[in-house]
């Protein structure tokens, strides 16, 4: 009887067991990236960059050149690497504490300069690695160890919507938000990730895919409860979909300084 292989490990992933908690969607998102690298034939010219956060050990799971950056600095690090080796595909894989808190300046300016890098931004509304502290993306009234009475928007402000924030920049970019909470959205998120890498390959623009993710351990939920929580609580605040594509035609700004002035 002939055996048809219908599912296998992507070449871009190593045969290692991840350290992620049971039910965590990091593994899913890693796999989406790996599948895209395989399918687009990019693996051998790709460098991944992961800074501090749960995914700091990503270099153990991905079968491509991999570099570890300082907390928050992955997009600056990726910028340096991409600028010196523009022929390579450079992506960073950053969490919400990393990208939306300590590394806000770096991501904002990398996006604004239109660095030809791809950023996978994993948003699970909490600091996972350090054990469940408030993140810039923690939802209002959500309880964490550093907002034990729930996030108070009076003192902690409202959660930062990175997709919307970066989309407001004038510089062309590809910016989308997907989610890892359901099979449908996992499939669609992969499409976003593929597009993000394609744009880089074509040297078109900066690309960022925010992926809503869970943290069953620090949310104190079962995996199923946690994916439901994404659907019920996160998606209403963090709407899904593409928000910015480089094809969008922008009206030239009248105040631009030129020789006509």
């Amino acid at each position: 009887m002939a055996v048809n292989k219908i599912f296998e490990r992507p070449v871009a992933m190593r045969e290692n067991i991840t350290h992620y908690c049971p039910g965590c969607t990091h593994g899913v998102i890693h796999r989406l990236v790996a599948e895209v690298l395989d399918e687009e034939g990019l693996r051998e010219k790709t460098c991944g960059v992961a800074p501090v956060g749960c995914s700091v050990l990503m270099y153990n799971y991905m079968n491509c050149d991999f570099l570890e950056a300082a907390h928050g600095r992955a997009s600056a690090f990726a910028t340096g690497l991409k600028r010196i080796s523009p022929e390579m595909i450079v992506f960073s894989y950053q969490g919400d504490g990393d990208l939306a808190s300590i590394g806000t300046n770096e991501i904002l300016h990398a996006a604004n300069r239109g660095e030809k890098i791809t950023v996978i931004f994993v948003n699970n509304a909490i600091y996972g690695m350090t054990g469940g502290q408030m993140a810039p993306t923690t939802l209002p009234n959500q309880v964490t160890t550093t907002c034990p009475f729930g996030r108070d928007t009076e003192t902690a402000g409202w959660p930062i919507r990175i997709r919307e924030l970066l989309s407001s920049l004038r510089t062309p970019a590809y910016i989308a938000r997907g989610s890892a909470h359901s099979p449908q959205w996992i499939i669609r998120t992969k499409k976003y990730i593929r597009k993000a890498f394609k744009y880089q390959e074509e040297n078109r623009c900066f690309s960022l895919v925010e992926v809503l993710s869970n943290c069953p351990t620090n949310w104190g939920m079962t995996p199923n409860e946690s994916t439901e929580w994404i659907a019920d609580n996160m998606i209403p605040y963090f709407p899904l979909g593409e928000l910015k594509t480089p094809e969008e035609v922008d009206v030239p700004t009248q105040t631009m300084i030129g020789k006509d002035n």
Binding site: A70, R73, A76, T79, G80, K82, R83, I84, E106
Partner: peptide, 26 residues
Amino acid sequence: GVFLQAESELGASNMLFGAAASGKRA
């Protein structure tokens, strides 16, 4: 060559970190 005006010295030095990882002079 490339001159990149970074957003801060944090940015500049971490760009240098990334560039140095390529083995080329920066």
